[in-house]
């Protein structure tokens, strides 16, 4: 790992807000509440979190589909706006991301024409090569999206992302809509492509086992903030934040009995009115008064320089 390809600094994103015609304030959703991290060239950064934690919003901001309310986001030194050439995106719902009225060939031709500036002949050659790279037959160029299975549609989505030869690919739940056998095919394909084209991945998922498998480093998001970030082995092996620990204990795994892990009566934080202290405090078994009044900073804890967590009472620190 060398220099950072992506630098995210204090990014926040709020939706809504402002005032109505009569001056009343509109409610504001705090989707991302001050997130900073780097993605190193050539690594895979996994981002995990549950629904509503802001992981998709961060992904959309990284590719330029959305802009931060505050903070900066640089990819290869370039900030905001036209990032398309260097950053591409793979959608969760692969089928919805393909125009139902266009052939696969026509869909793949767009980035080749607009971003790579290839002429017709070159485009046709590249489409064949792209389909080949994602192990699809060249005849797929003539097909329409509805003729594809979910796994094939996701391969086309990956091929489209690779068309303009980006350096960073943001994968937003790329396999969670797929069947397990298709999921394994796509995960293996992504690993191969990364090696072949020297790509950097940001891999977003709610599935911990998938993230653990593909990631070099992992960031755990809770309620719009990074609560823990570090090497995958460290985060999954010696979690510092109680929320990471809760996630790990909740994931069902073959041969592991169920354990009651959480108090269902605990109220989840309100995105319209974020709490003052740690957002996880109401669910946290270790919460003390300081947790409810003071939001812990994301700093290295437990004597490790590369594993950061935002907790006043980190777990592994006691070990």
């Amino acid at each position: 790992m060398s220099d950072p390809l992506v630098e995210v600094r204090d990014v926040t994103r709020r939706f809504g807000g402002g005032h109505t015609l009569f001056g009343n304030p509109r409610p504001q959703v705090h989707a991302v509440r001050g997130v900073s991290f780097d993605v190193m060239r050539g690594e895979t950064l996994g981002i995990v979190g549950e629904s509503g934690c802001g992981k998709s919003t961060i992904a959309r901001m990284m590719v330029g589909l959305d802009v931060p309310t505050d903070g900066t986001l640089h990819v290869a030194g370039v900030g905001g706006g036209r990032l398309a050439r260097t950053v591409q995106y793979v959608f969760q719902d692969s089928m919805a991301a393909l125009n139902p009225r266009k052939r696969i060939g026509a869909i793949l031709a767009v980035p080749l024409k607009r971003l790579a500036g290839l002429d017709r002949r070159q485009r046709e050659e590249r489409i064949g090569a792209l389909l080949d790279a994602v192990s699809l037959d060249a005849t797929f160029a003539e097909r329409y999206p509805h003729e594809l299975s979910g796994g094939q549609a996701q391969r086309v989505g990956i091929a489209r992302a690779l068309a303009a030869e980006p350096s960073l690919v943001v994968l937003d739940e790329p396999v969670s809509a797929l069947d397990v056998s298709m999921q394994a095919q796509v995960i293996n394909l992504l690993a191969d492509l990364k090696r072949r084209f020297g790509l950097t991945y940001v891999f977003i998922s709610h599935d911990l086992s998938v993230v653990e498998m593909v990631s070099d480093r992992v960031a755990v998001l809770y309620f719009g903030k990074v609560v823990e970030i570090g090497p995958a082995a460290a985060v999954f092996g010696r979690a510092q934040h109680p929320y990471t620990d809760l996630l790990l204990r909740s994931a069902p795994a073959p041969g592991r009995p169920l354990r009651v892990v959480d108090d269902a009566s605990a109220e989840l934080p309100d995105p319209y009115d974020p709490p003052e202290g740690c957002a996880f405090a109401p669910r946290c078994p270790r919460a003390a008064n300081v947790c409810r009044s003071e939001d812990p900073r994301l700093v290295p804890r437990g004597g490790k320089a590369d594993q950061l967590s935002a907790c006043h009472f980190p777990l592994a620190a006691e070990l």
Binding site: S149, V180, Q183, A184, I187, S209, E212, A233, A253, P254
Partner: peptide, 22 residues
Amino acid sequence: RLVDCVPVLGEPERRLDAIEGR
């Protein structure tokens, strides 16, 4: 094959044995 192609938490090193075809 179905058991083998599912990633398991705590075993990140194992290579997923995908079932080819549909």
